[in-house]
């Protein structure tokens, strides 16, 4: 049996627990970016920007993933609908869409999907440059999550608001501070999907390279080559992008073009992989002596690719012997 004296004590304990919980909630994670942004506005960033023509696919069930993806793709000229994407990115058992599949789904529609830095400024710069951004938010709390995809289409630094296509709301205005809280909980996950040849303005070199290599995997070779050219225009010294261009040209049947790219890459980067691929393309072109020279040069710098270069040299010698 409960004694009456217990009750106030219990009540007090409950109350202090509630206060502690509330304090923990309030103190966990501050919206530092939004405060900073409004104190000192970044240089060259317009005060406001809004991509008003971004299409809207309302959703009030579990399909915010397909809806956000269709919104971002249709906005950049890769027209599609959420219905067409449900089978590609929605996971019925989880009643939602996973981040990995959102990126893969964008690629399947012919877009290069690039992760961008997790800053409010990056989101703003992208929309100012005309690129809508897909973001993952946790609208709830870390221990009571409500994961949600939305598309950032603009912002207003004067009113301190982010503008989104979000679920059933065509033009959601959400305070920068609240948006930052919901976005922090997804570790500020965001990506921009663009047709091959274009890349998000805020993308880092490594993220862009990663996105392009991922795109090449399932894209038609000519599209992959176009995408790599776009990357090389911004980062001409990137060896991975150069190799990607060479490989895509080769896969699209442009042997002369591929050879030229591999030759240039081998020379500027001293890259064993470039020598190896150049040698094999030269072999395909029937230029055996040059092929052997390239493979031999590659072997000198082969490092971990030694086995590959030895095999290539073997292939060349076999082909030369049968001639």
């Amino acid at each position: 049996m409960r004694s009456t004296a217990d009750l106030p004590a219990r009540g007090r304990r409950w109350f202090s627990t509630a206060i502690a919980l509330l304090a923990a909630l309030l103190l966990s994670g501050c919206a530092t970016q939004s405060a900073r942004l409004q104190d000192a506005r970044p240089e060259g960033l317009p005060v406001r920007s809004e991509l008003v023509d971004t299409p809207f696919f309302p959703d009030d069930s579990h399909f915010c993933g397909p809806a956000a993806l269709a919104t971002s793709l249709s906005a950049v000229g890769l027209a599609t609908t959420p219905e067409a994407l449900i089978g590609q990115v929605f996971l019925p058992g989880r009643e939602g869409s996973l981040q990995v599949e959102m990126l893969a789904g964008a690629r399947r529609q012919g877009a290069v999907a690039t992760r961008i830095p997790g800053t409010l400024e990056a989101l703003m710069r992208e929309t100012a440059a005309g690129n809508p951004v897909v973001v993952l938010q946790n609208l709830g709390l870390s221990w009571a999550p409500s994961w949600h995809y939305a598309v950032v289409v603009g912002y207003d630094l004067d009113t301190g608001e982010m503008l989104l296509r979000s679920g059933p709301v065509k033009r959601e205005t959400i305070s920068l501070r609240t948006f930052e809280h919901t976005w922090n909980r997804s570790e500020r996950w965001a990506f921009v999907a663009l047709p091959p040849g274009r890349l998000p303005v805020t993308a880092s070199e490594s993220e862009a390279a990663r996105a392009l290599v991922q795109f090449e995997r399932n894209a038609p070779a000519a599209k992959a080559a176009e995408a790599y050219r776009g990357g090389l225009a911004r980062w001409p010294a990137n060896a991975v992008l150069a190799m990607g261009l060479g490989n895509s040209l080769h896969a699209s049947g442009d042997l002369a073009g591929a050879e030229a790219v591999f030759r240039h890459t081998a020379k500027t980067h001293g890259l064993a992989a470039a020598y190896n691929n150049q040698a094999l393309v030269l072999l395909e072109l029937g230029r055996h002596a040059e092929a052997r020279r390239a493979a031999e040069r590659g072997l000198k710098v082969a490092g971990p690719l030694r086995q590959t270069l030895l095999e290539t040299l073997g292939t060349i010698e076999k082909a030369a012997a049968t001639d």
């Binding site: 929605f90 996973l98 993952l136 709390l141 999550p145 809280h181």
Partner: peptide, 26 residues
């Protein structure tokens, strides 16, 4: 995280209501 769940369970309704008003959640 599987983005797609709108709505929260009743147990945390009031907490989320409060945090919504405080601008921590939406």
């Amino acid at each position: 995280p599987a983005g797609g769940i709108i709505g929260a369970i009743l147990l945390v309704f009031f907490v989320l209501l409060l945090t919504d008003i405080l601008g921590l959640t939406k």
